[in-house]
Nucleic acid binder design. Structure first.
Lengths: 342, 342
DNA sequence: CTGTTAGCGCATTCAT
DNA sequence: ATGAATGCGCTAACAG
């Protein structure tokens, strides 16, 4: 059926549909959108639907956006897909956005300056709001952005003084839960492996860790690394495990760090979990395929994305910025990397 | 500096800039775009630039798109970010697109029917072309898409009869290289672990594997799994290793499958690489952090993305669809998962 | 119940 | 060297 409706290669417009249905384009617009004022007679209605169908008509988003000054798309900025957390967030956002008829444009730090990217997206009218899920953009830069585009920027798993619109998960509680588990296993000396204190999630997790240790009378040490990836975890483990009085358990601040810690211990000849227990924040399917299988603390990342989209949508509708904490409690996912203290 | 240029909360338009510079908006348009006919006097020119600068003017893409029927954005469909390959492709596309001033809209299979999604993107005028990097969409569905949108669809690492616009890497050669390495190590019986034969990349890798085995006189067996993820690799290893006459080496058709194979062998108590060698197609940083460190065949995935974007861009400019093979030869990245045959 | 009109922001003739 | 007029496709008053 390679039919070629005329020599017509351009997309059908409202006018095309109107012509085919023998009515005015404005009527078509109303009917197709289900506009309450578009109460066409059953007959015209049917003809319109029919025409739209045969032509494969889809409203042009540029024209519609121009008219309504609403693009119906959300932007999401991520550092990349290095961590499974980011894909989970992206899925959550996409799902929620789509449910409201919104599209999603994704952008990573891979290319160009993120501040610039965000400004462009907003100022060019590419998106109605931007979700920022990067710990790398500086606070001042973010404040500036929010200042210039009030009601159009939402922070994802990050809080910045002076910026209300943000949604986070209970990172601190997850770290605390980890400590509780370890403490229950008899560990009295735990080392936390985190990224820079300039990264909001890292300070929240770190605080949760420190407080829980204090509360439970556990000896806490901390290794702070410049990055939060495999490599950082690897090196942190090397560093922590080679001290004169090494901890009996390690808590990794991110999932990739946990993967690195496991490898670091292995290369040092330190057996996990026999000689040292390892736990990582954030869960991922991959954990089951590591050796040993890595126990984790699961946080609702997908919902994090969904809630962020939700907030952005409400802002677009004129809602007020607010701080939301995704209420789901962190869960301990026990696999094979923890055991009673040696 | 919470200055509020008037009560002005909406984005500045060409007219705003024109007013501030004391000229007509059409002149501003020409000057700002570097239109050859926009040869304003040095003075006006300066005033225009100045005005645009202070207002932070950015051309509205909807208006521009409407006028030019060109959105300046590319769409990319992926199954998800389960595999590092997809993020690499996305980065490659993003980079190349940006270099030509194009934006990128990413969409995964997470939500909704992909065929529908692609059609929508194109018909709604959200994008100028779509790159499809999914092995899951059926051939007929794809052909239909290309039929309806000639010159607007590019296949990424996939070939379909009747569709010219596609770019692939040398998958088959990578599989062959793997076999050569293993054969050189004395392995005479190798098991290939692949996904369904309905997936183009899988048949290309599989063919490369089979032919190389035949050529080198190696005994080839194949396990075909419905999926291509960790789980599939895990189960395939279990299956292959429990036969009466198990192979001495396994080649995993995807990186996640390789991860799964490693775990499968471990749980069977089969030592890698002492009892069985393991190799996986596609390289990733994670390989260094597995136990044992996983040897892989590296393929130019980032460039794959870049070339796909390149092709799409050329199609948009009216170029003709063509098949491109990224010429970079696959590379063996030796780590610790292969050894001489037992 | 349906048609007419106007304008969103921009790029492009065509004048001057 | 610069300005005026027009239309991309759509929606929202406002008629009738």
């Amino acid at each position: 059926m390679a039919q070629d409706n005329g020599a017509d290669r351009r997309r059908p417009t409202l006018t095309d549909v109107a012509a085919l249905a023998g009515v005015d384009s404005s009527l078509v617009s109303r009917v197709l959108r289900g506009d309450p004022k578009g109460f066409a007679s059953a007959d015209t209605r049917a003809r319109i639907m029919q025409a739209a169908e045969t032509l494969g008509y889809r409203a042009n988003v540029a024209a519609r956006g121009l008219r309504n000054s609403r693009t119906m798309t959300l932007g999401l900025v991520l550092p990349g897909f290095s961590s499974p957390v980011y894909s989970a967030i992206a899925h959550g956002v996409e799902e929620r956005a789509r449910a409201s008829g919104y599209g999603l444009v994704l952008s990573t730090h891979a290319v160009g300056d993120p501040h610039e990217t965000i400004t462009d997206m907003l100022m060019q009218g590419r998106v109605d709001a931007m979700l920022v899920a990067s710990g790398l953009i500086e606070d001042t830069s973010l404040r500036q952005l929010v200042d210039r585009h009030p009601g159009s920027v939402v922070l994802v798993n990050r809080q910045v003084r002076g910026i209300a619109a943000s949604v986070v998960v209970r990172d601190g509680d997850a770290a605390a839960l980890a400590v509780e588990h370890l403490s229950g296993l008899g560990h009295r000396s735990i080392c936390g492996v985190f990224g820079l204190r300039t990264v909001d999630t890292m300070v929240r997790r770190r605080n949760g860790f420190v407080r829980a240790c204090k509360r439970l009378g556990v000896d806490a040490t901390i290794v702070e690394m410049p990055d939060r990836d495999h490599v950082a975890g690897y090196e942190a483990a090397q560093r922590a495990l080679q001290t004169t009085n090494p901890p009996t358990a390690l808590l990794a601040g991110t999932f990739p760090m946990g993967v690195g810690v496991l490898a670091g211990a292995r290369d040092l000849g330190v057996a996990v979990p026999e000689q040292v227990s390892v736990l990582a924040l954030h869960n991922d399917q991959l954990a089951d395929y590591l050796s040993p299988r890595l126990s984790t603390l699961s946080l609702p990342t997908r919902r994090l994305g969904a809630e962020a989209a939700e907030l952005a949508l409400s802002l677009i509708e004129g809602g007020t910025p607010r701080r939301v904490v995704v209420p789901d409690a962190p869960e301990l996912v026990l696999r094979s990397s923890t055991a009673t203290a040696p």
